[in-house]
Every structure is written in C-alpha cells, then in structure tokens.
C-alpha cells in the first residue's frame, strides 16, 4: 500500500465515520481539552491501523476496535492531559459539535460515564446496533459473557431512567 493510498483511506474514514469517533470520545473524556487530546490519540491510532485492516470485518467494526482500545488505554493513564512541558495552543478545539442540546442524550452520556471502561464499551456497541458476535470479536470475550453483561447493563439503564 502506497503512502498516498494510506492517506486517502485515513481521510475517507475520518470523514465518513466521525460521528462514531465523537461518540467514543464523548463517552471517555469529560472536558473539551481531554476530548481534543483523546481525539488526537484516536486519530493517530486509526492512521497507524490503516495498513493492518484486512477487510475481514466492516470498517465500523474495525474503527470501533481501534478507537475503544485507545480510549480505554487513555483513561488508564494517570495524567489525562498532554505533556505539560509542551506548549499546546488550546484556544482552538479540534472537535466542534454543532449539536442542539438534548437533555435525554446528556442524561444517557452521564449514565454511560458512570460505568466502568469495559461496560462503557459494551454500551456504546449495543447502542450502535452491534451483534453479540461482533461485540465478542471486538472485545475478545465470549458471546455468552457479552450476553450476561448486556442484560445487566440494559436493566441498570432502564431502572435508572425510571428513577430519574
């Protein structure tokens, strides 16, 4: 694969699947600076992953795998921000959302944020319509385990919504 081909694929993925990436970023990073930082990390990992993509799965499945791995790793880092010795201009943010405020969506994100990193991944995959089989492939766990976890998550979210 030539460099131009890699660049072209990366730009296309970024353009076509930015909503997917932003959902993950919003679920794992909770202020604008962290969101920019995580988005940047994900963009780097997605670019690096272009040559490893063998078209054995859908692009969305691949991107979810790369982006979720990056997001989970990113949250495990002790320090969330960029190296403080590097002078970074944060006056301009990388991702800009033109989304009208939706209280129900904000509530959903708040609930997702309270889950642990793995449950958060499963919830995102579930909400985006992935099958148990796909989820098990992305996370590297058995389908039966996915099923048990998903049932717990669904029950948890529905109970919470009834209480609020």
């Amino acid at each position: 694969m030539t460099e131009n081909e890699i660049n072209h694929i990366f730009q296309t993925w970024l353009k076509q699947h930015k909503a997917l990436l932003f959902k993950i970023v919003r679920s794992y990073a909770f202020n604008e600076e962290d969101r920019d930082d995580l988005f940047q990390e994900i963009a780097i990992q997605v670019w690096r992953s272009v040559t490893s993509f063998k078209q054995q799965s859908a692009v969305t499945t691949w991107l979810y795998r790369v982006a979720l791995n990056t997001a989970i790793k990113w949250t495990t880092k002790e320090r969330k921000h960029q190296d403080r010795h590097e002078s970074i201009d944060v006056s301009q943010h990388i991702i800009e959302s033109h989304q009208p405020p939706d209280d129900r969506l904000a509530w959903l994100y708040e609930e997702i944020a309270q889950l642990n990193e793995v449950d958060r991944s499963l919830t995102l995959l579930l909400l985006d319509g992935f099958s148990y089989k796909e989820m098990s492939k992305i996370l590297g766990i058995s389908e039966s385990n996915v099923g048990v976890k998903i049932n717990r998550i669904k029950k948890h979210l529905t109970t919470k919504s009834e209480k609020s």
Binding site: A19, K23, D37, I44, I94, Q99, D102, L105
Partner: peptide, 23 residues
C-alpha cells in the same frame, strides 16, 4: 442515541488537529 448519526452535526477543526500533532 441514533440522532447523533447526522454527520453534519460534527466538524473536525483540521487546523487545530494539525497544530496539536505538530506540538
């Protein structure tokens, strides 16, 4: 959740991304 799938709702500021990577 699916209301977010409208691509036009999100914009990547390429200039800012470029600057961050450069830093």
């Amino acid at each position: 959740w699916d209301t977010q799938n409208d691509e036009a709702l999100y914009v990547i500021n390429e200039d800012a991304l470029h600057r961050r990577i450069k830093a």
